[in-house]
Computed example of a mutant assay.
Amino acid sequence: MAAETNSISGLLTDAVKRHIPGATGIADLRRLSGGASQEIWSFDATTEAGMIPLILRRAPGGFRDTGRSGTAVTLETEAKLISLAEEVGVPVPPVRYVLTEADGIGQGFIMDRIPGETLARKILRDEEFANARPKLARQCGEVLAKLHTVEKSKLPPLRIASGRDEVEQYFKTYKELDYPHPVFELAFRWLKDNAPPGEMELTLVHGDFRNGNLMIGPDGLRAVLDWEIAHVGDPMADLSWICINPWRFGNIDMPVGGFGTREDLFAGYEAAGGGKVDPAHVKFWEVLGTLKWGVMCMGMASAFLQGDRSVERATIGRRSSETEVDLMRLLAPLTGRE
């Protein structure tokens, strides 16, 4: 790790001095443990007026990232989307500079470091966030309403995915994994039978709006992070994804991220100009999101069984059975329950 830090330090110092106004160098460069698919480095730019807290988000090892999974955007595109979201009032860490080949650091960008917490366990339980929790669901709705107003004409090239596209994609993946789950079969049939009669106007969709990708402070939502699977799609996908049970972290009776209600989420969305929310339309996406997570878990289990013996893959892989319970709660709810 020390060698890696030293190799980046000099090049990053030069880039910061060239592109951050007033910067004279860097201090306290360290790699953070977060970031499942990209490297996250924390550092301060030194100036005569004091320190500027910054983050370097970089492709693993600096090697060029072309959208690894076929759904993930490149880091240059991610930086562009963050800037576009900032223009319409979405709280984000402002992007200071997008790295170029001449910088010698690899693919990535430098953005402001926003203080706060992303760990759901702390956000949902610590006293520090007690005043924030009742406000978060409405704030999430307000932020999503702003996000969905980004002009499509300004967007860089992005994947386009409607609800029907997503159902077909994940059904194909499910069949390829060749491990029957009767409840998943039921859910796929339900989705085909209950697709919304007409697609909403497609908008920019964050794609992973949930606990872990939201920076929270005692005052509430401070920044939306990790835009790597953003795409053009149905805006209701964003409202539903934060509601699926895995992102509640045990607080199953608080559907929105374990901290709030759908009613507050929808009210915030509508009040901020997001349009009238149809709960049945959101439910379609919540069922689809839950099913998608289940298929992803199946993929993790398959990778483990084929030789990738990481504990993470094994742990996540076994959670496909939990998803079956979540789907039955959605498809055949008990009276008075979620």
Rank of each mutant, 00 (worst) to 15 (best):
V205K: 00
T46Y: 03
L81W: 01
D112S: 07
A49V: 02
V183L: 12
S302N: 09
A120H: 04
F43N: 09
D208G: 10
P53D: 00
R64D: 06
L202G: 01
T261R: 01
S7D: 10
T173Q: 15
G250I: 10
R309L: 13
G220L: 02
L147Q: 05
K283W: 12
R210I: 04
R138N: 11
G70M: 10
P197W: 09
G317H: 06
L32R: 13
R125G: 01
K283H: 15
A130F: 05
T315M: 13
P218W: 04
S7V: 00
R210G: 04
I52A: 00
L54V: 07
T74L: 12
I160Y: 06
N211L: 11
V287C: 11
F259A: 00
A271H: 03
Y170E: 09
M300G: 02
K154N: 01
G62Q: 04
G273H: 03
P94N: 09
T149V: 07
T46V: 14
A137P: 08
D253R: 12
E87F: 02
W247N: 05
D65K: 07
D165A: 13
G268L: 05
P246N: 07
L12H: 04
D234M: 08
T173L: 15
L147Y: 04
I40L: 12
T71R: 11
G273R: 05
K146T: 11
D44T: 11
G233Y: 08
K192P: 10
T77M: 04
R31H: 10
L147M: 12
G257D: 05
M200K: 15
G217C: 05
G212W: 04
C140M: 15
R329G: 00
I110L: 03
P246D: 06
E199M: 11
R210V: 04
L147W: 00
D126G: 10
E78L: 13
R58D: 00
Y179P: 07
D238F: 06
S69H: 14
H206N: 08
R18I: 06
P94C: 08
V92I: 09
V98L: 02
L32W: 10
G257L: 08
T71M: 12
T46A: 11
H281Y: 13
R30C: 03
L265R: 02
S37P: 13
S42G: 12
A237I: 06
Y174Q: 03
N194S: 12
E228K: 13
E4N: 07
Y179G: 09
